[in-house]
Amino acid sequence: MLSCHPTIDILTEYAAGSLPLAHSLGVSVHLDQCPHCRDQVRRLNNIGAELFSEHSAEVRPDHMASLKSKVMASLVNHEETQAAVDDNTAFQHIPRSLRRWIPQGFNDLNWMPLTPSFKLATLSNESGGAQIALSRVKPGARLPNHTHTGNEITVVLKGAFSDDEGLYREGDFICRDHNHKHQPRVTKDAECICLIILDSPIEFTGWFTRLLNPIMRYFHPNSAAT
């Protein structure tokens, strides 16, 4: 049983489509492993469906007729289309919504070592948006002390880590804001891989690791503005 879930506020925004895309990605990775939140989202979708179906606007009939013939005319070529559902084989452990970026498994990504025990691989940078990356930390290692300059969403993909507030396992969804300063530690039995979604760069507060901050900023899509 997972212990950390998105709040109902986040799930509502997700269902309504008003959550930023990058955050929605984090939620969807969690949903992949959490039947409870899936059920919750399904119910939240039902509200949207009701509001949607009760809300119609008047349109000129001739306008709708011409739109309809456009739709009908463009069907022909698509008739055979069958969306291929990709859930094959070797990479079942990778959440479906991430497989596009991780087609060949975790090892095949372009990992950038930041400290001897901590590596980072960027999956996607939205221009002016969030950075989406994976962090990979060796068994038993401590992450450098750091703080967040914006919101950070973490979803555990493999292994487990803990901080002052608890232990987080595969599938857990953790949302931290900029007031939060913490030093996560990975459990000793296995390495830990997490999806992290950063609204703005992480800032290391340790003596020595501060030297990494320019690198963290460099790789964040928001850095161009500063």
């Binding site: 489509g17 929605s24 949207g48 596009r100 002016g128 948006g129």
Partner: peptide
């Protein structure tokens, strides 16, 4: 509703303020 919601997000993603290569259709798992 979910198709319309996703299509609306997708439209904004392609034509909106900030670009992104996240495809809302990937969220269909639920």
């Amino acid at each position: 509703f979910t198709i319309a919601r996703n299509a609306r997000i997708d439209y904004m993603r392609k034509n909106g303020r900030y670009q992104s290569d996240i495809d809302p259709e990937d969220f269909w798992s639920e």
